[in-house]
Design a protein around this nucleic acid. Structure first.
Lengths: 154, 154
DNA sequence: CTTGGTGCAAACGTTTTGCAGTATC
DNA sequence: GATACTGCAAAACGTTTGCACCAAG
């Protein structure tokens, strides 16, 4: 039994509770999303195609839309115009944060929230009722930072 | 003398210093961007067309790309797939933050940084060298928050 | 047999590009 | 007259939609 099976069973319940079905296509898409984070629709499509060669890109998009509506996945918009997708673990109301490496393009995640103080400040000063946030840091990941330091030394 | 004139003069210097020219089209585009924030390329195009009817959409895009490279404007990606543009005042290295109202779509700005502590924490824990950040809060603006409260009362 | 789901292809909206023509030094 | 810049139209890109077909209750 794979580790993703229990996750899929839980998701299956949520999908059925909402009145939809977990078709084989949708299950394949979920498996790919559970396996690797921050994939684009096209990347998910290609990976699913390796398992189920008959799938269509439209099905991927429609499934991603459905899963997004049910809050099972998050749709991420970085600045390249391509949407990426993320499993939304444990129903957390606030999205976690991203570390985007400007050099190699790697996307890491910060699980902690860390914004509680900032949000309180903003709610107080701007009379804005915060529901969620998107926070991405742009910079250099550990590997690229080291490489650029070595370059400056040598 | 309009208030945007001095701003445009400063920008002109930066453009020429980088080896480019401030053509009439580029100046018209800058005026529109200085006048109103968060416009999309299409909106900028239409507004410039009102002044200079001969302008082409491609010129708008090419100018926006140029101004982005020179750090004169920021390209903003919210989740609707349309890029919006922002003057990058006083060469600040860190972008300020956005308050996006889920009800009326209004975009407000938070000028303060407020993330210094969070950034120090992340640099320490994740060995990630932060260069910039994007932070958007999703929620209800003052007006929409009041309206929704009134609705719940009445 | 009705409903939801699928694949394909066409359409869509935003952005980019090729190219011939224009403006500026 | 070389170079950067422009407008137009076409292309490219990610995404959505219309439609005929399929699957499951």
């Amino acid at each position: 039994m794979e580790k993703s099976d229990t996750a899929i069973q839980k998701i299956k319940q949520r999908i059925y509770k909402a009145g939809y079905k977990l078709t084989p296509q949708r299950e394949d898409i979920l498996k790919v999303i559970l396996e690797k984070e921050h994939l684009s629709a096209e990347e998910i499509y290609l990976q699913v195609k390796a398992i189920n060669s008959g799938i269509g890109l439209a099905t991927v998009y429609r499934t991603l839309e459905l899963l997004g509506e049910l809050n099972i996945i998050n749709k991420l918009a970085f600045q390249d115009g391509i949407s990426r997708y993320d499993i939304n673990n444990n129903d957390q109301q606030h999205q976690h944060h991203y570390l985007l490496c400007l050099n190699c393009g790697k996307i890491d995640e910060v699980e902690q929230d860390m914004l509680t103080d900032v949000e309180n400040e903003i709610e107080k000063n701007y009379h804005f009722k915060i529901k969620d946030h998107r926070l991405t840091f742009h910079g250099l990941c550990n590997k690229c930072r080291k490489e650029s330091e070595d370059l400056n030394k040598g």
